[in-house]
Write a protein that binds this DNA or RNA. Structure first.
Lengths: 107, 107
DNA sequence: AATTCTTACGACGGCCGTAAGGATG
DNA sequence: CATCCTTACGGCCGTCGTAAGAATT
């Protein structure tokens, strides 16, 4: 289960529909349908099911939900750590090629 | 930072070298080099640096390490939840197309 | 000199949007 | 019949391994 899987899984679980999840993540319905299919094939199990009221978590999906939410929380924490940092790297031991590459990017 | 990023980051941090990390993940050195470059460009910051003793974490990398390890732990927990489950889905409310698709996969 | 890292190149695979069709209520 | 979901198609972008060269010790 990669990180894109986790995002799709959470979006569908929250929106209760593929179309809603797709809207939320800025992709097409068809894309979300393929993502769910691929996700469940990779997992080898169903995590979400279509009901008269839209997509709902299976018992296994419920079990996975907590893990997925914690992964999301960690990912968000990393974003916070990383964003808005000084990338100047002054004084860092670093090969010349890396220096120039990163410098190019920073500029 | 997606899940593949996390795996590469952890592998490099643990092996202290790109070649060792590549060996561990079953890819080429060149692939690991590109992954680290892409990872740090996406992050907008350096997380690992080359030192006389090999690759070591920057202070920011140290800060991220804990998050990465927790993400890994959650991912492993999901694997455990998902593997070896019964995928028979008996009695599940499910569209006919989904039924047949999953049935095909299970068989 | 041996090991390690970088990068240009060509190829392959995966994922996407579009569009058309089927299911659902 | 309006909405939602599925899927074949064609194209594009990303990632890979190879291979050759530079850096480091």
């Amino acid at each position: 289960m990669d990180w894109d899987d986790v995002r799709s899984f959470l979006a569908i679980a929250r929106a209760r529909s593929l179309s809603g999840a797709a809207r939320e993540l800025g992709v097409r319905q068809s894309t979300m349908s393929r993502r769910l299919e691929a996700l469940e094939l990779r997992a080898g199990a169903r995590l979400l099911q279509r009901t008269p009221r839209g997509y709902e978590l299976t018992p296994l999906g419920e079990a996975v939900l907590g893990n997925a939410e914690r992964m999301e929380a960690e990912a968000i924490a990393v974003e916070r750590l990383v964003q808005g940092r000084d990338v100047a790297l002054s004084g860092v031991v670093c090969s010349a090629t890396n220096w120039m590459r990163i410098a190019r990017q920073s500029g």
